[in-house]
């Protein structure tokens, strides 16, 4: 493995962290949207706010990492993606602004009408942002972003069967992860009724997600044949098997109320999907562009990786402390 491969792997690790943690924060917003009326939904909204409040900004930084590593490590690929897909990416960026600011505004609001207004903005943007982010992934996966600046079609590159499918899939993933994570958060706080509610949601979303994945594979077969071939017969297959297997085990664990264990298997199901895609597409980043052709000069890759290693040594204990504090029960405090 050379420097380009290590850089890409680190980028993909960042993306994985963003989907798992940042994704769950978006999913929390979706459940906020579906929590019901002001009074009936209050306990659920309280749990969601308590769970994502201290960590969402830190979780959000993973996305910035991915973008910066893309433009540092594979500048021309980044420019091709960002220029061709500027429409969905603008919508993602605006969704991120609406989600983050509305959440922060709601947190300090004390009156119900304002809480409702900011809450609605927070919840709606939580639903739409992962969808558009998913369409971007679908555009890249289905080879619709050619190399070159704005060389792809500005509209059909992200409005196509694979992109729409991936958009739905991403949204479902965030909702599923959030439901799974919230189940355990509620249990730890002794809110058994809330835990039951989120367990039901996790089960339903898990089944929906499984169905969507199946339909997604069929869509890929028609719309993105090369990726489909690699996922079902090539390098992506083992990871896809891991993903499907973990998904099934997760449903069983949820059924048996093993809320801590299901966190791991649900995450593994998502990780398998992400890395399966990566393995299936490797070594091409864009059609006709391999990782070696796209990579930045070795001096840049080395300096960046060293900086990240040093940074990681500072970040790991800090992040652990943050999660440890935020995972402490509210009741104990």
């Amino acid at each position: 493995m050379g420097l380009p491969e290590i850089t890409l792997a680190v980028t993909w690790l960042g993306l994985t962290a963003y989907v798992l943690f940042g994704g769950a924060d978006f999913g929390g917003g979706i459940w906020d949207l579906l929590a019901g009326g002001t009074e009936r939904g209050r306990p659920q909204r309280g749990l969601i706010e308590h769970s994502i409040g201290p960590v969402w900004e830190a979780n959000h930084v993973w996305l910035i990492f991915v973008i910066v590593l893309m433009w540092t490590g594979f500048p021309a690929v980044f420019a091709a993606i960002a220029s061709t897909l500027y429409i969905p990416l603008t919508l993602v960026a605006l969704g991120i602004i609406a989600r983050g600011s509305a959440f922060a505004f709601r947190k300090v609001s004390t009156r119900i009408p304002r809480e409702r207004l900011f809450g609605a903005a927070f919840a709606l943007s939580s639903l739409l942002t992962p969808f558009f982010l998913g369409t971007v992934a679908g555009a890249i996966a289905s080879d619709r972003v050619p190399p070159g600046i704005a060389a792809g079609d500005l509209v059909t590159s992200w409005l196509n069967p694979t992109s729409l499918m991936t958009g739905l899939l991403t949204t479902a993933i965030t909702a599923y992860l959030a439901a799974v994570f919230l189940t355990r958060d509620a249990q730890r706080d002794g809110e058994l009724e809330l835990a039951e509610q989120f367990r039901r949601r996790a089960l339903v979303t898990g089944v929906v997600l499984g169905g969507l994945s199946l339909v997604g594979l069929l869509v890929l077969r028609v719309d993105a044949a090369p990726l489909y071939a690699q996922l079902t017969g090539g390098a992506g297959l083992p990871l896809l098997v891991v993903s499907v297997g973990s998904g099934v085990v997760s449903l069983l664990l949820l059924w048996r109320r093993r809320y801590l264990a299901v966190r791991l298997t649900a995450a593994l199901a998502v990780v398998g999907l992400l890395w399966g895609w990566a393995a299936a597409q490797f070594p091409e980043l864009l059609p006709g562009v391999t990782i070696e052709q796209a990579a930045a000069t070795p001096a840049v890759l080395l300096a960046t990786l060293i900086a990240l290693a040093v940074g990681g040594a500072l970040l790991a204990p800090s992040l652990w402390w943050l999660y440890a504090i935020s995972q402490r029960s509210t009741k104990a405090a």
């Binding site: 990492f65 910066v68 433009w71 540092t72 500048p75 840049v300």
Partner: peptide
């Protein structure tokens, strides 16, 4: 597309 790698380090 050209200079992303030159200014990438400070952003990382």
């Amino acid at each position: 597309s050209i200079y992303g790698e030159v200014i990438g380090l400070p952003f990382a």
